[in-house]
Amino acid sequence: MTVQRHDALGQEIERTFTAVRAALPATNVAAFDAELEAITHAPVVDLAALDDFLSGWWRIAMRAAQDPRDWQRMNEEAEQIHSGKRSAGRTLAEVLARRGVQL
């Protein structure tokens, strides 16, 4: 049995603001910057929110780096759904109900 690494092409993305921002696809950088600015320009910086922010964006950077084409496709599909060019499909609750799972 082999274990798959959960890093980008064998290289770990350092969990720092600079490294995470540099590893993000260009389409995600503006959202990263806007969210960071909102957190850091509060009268009192919430360190838990800042840590959650970095953790979340680090996971996004890792996921995007693992398969950039898949990440791009996912974002394109999300934009199509958001703009109304494509239906969202069934909800998770509908899929589970169809399989006999009650929530």
Rank of each mutant, 00 (worst) to 15 (best):
R63Q: 15
Q11S: 11
Q4S: 04
R90E: 08
E14I: 10
H6W: 09
S83V: 13
R69T: 14
R15Y: 00
P68T: 03
E37T: 12
E35C: 13
V95N: 03
T91M: 00
L24A: 07
T40L: 11
H6K: 02
D51V: 14
A19G: 02
M74N: 06
G10L: 00
D52N: 04
A26L: 12
A93T: 04
I81K: 01
N28G: 08
V101D: 09
A93M: 04
L36G: 04
A64K: 02
K85R: 08
S55R: 15
V95Q: 00
E37M: 07
R73L: 10
R98D: 11
A78F: 11
G10R: 00
W57S: 04
A97G: 08
D33R: 00
L36F: 07
Q72T: 10
R73C: 01
L96N: 07
V101P: 03
A19S: 09
R69F: 13
A88L: 14
H41F: 15
F53W: 00
G56N: 08
R5Q: 11
A97L: 08
V44W: 03
R98Q: 08
T2Y: 12
T18W: 10
F53Q: 05
M74Y: 09
A97Q: 02
R98T: 08
I60E: 08
E14Q: 06
G84N: 05
I60G: 07
V45I: 13
A42E: 07
A61I: 05
A78M: 06
E35I: 08
R73A: 13
T18Y: 08
A48K: 12
Q66W: 01
V45S: 05
G84E: 00
D46P: 14
A61W: 07
D7V: 03
G89E: 00
Q66K: 11
T18S: 13
A34K: 01
N75Q: 14
M62R: 15
F32L: 03
D70P: 05
I60Y: 09
A65G: 09
T40V: 14
D67L: 07
L96F: 11
I13Q: 04
L103R: 09
Q11H: 10
D51I: 14
T16F: 02
I60Q: 07
A23L: 04
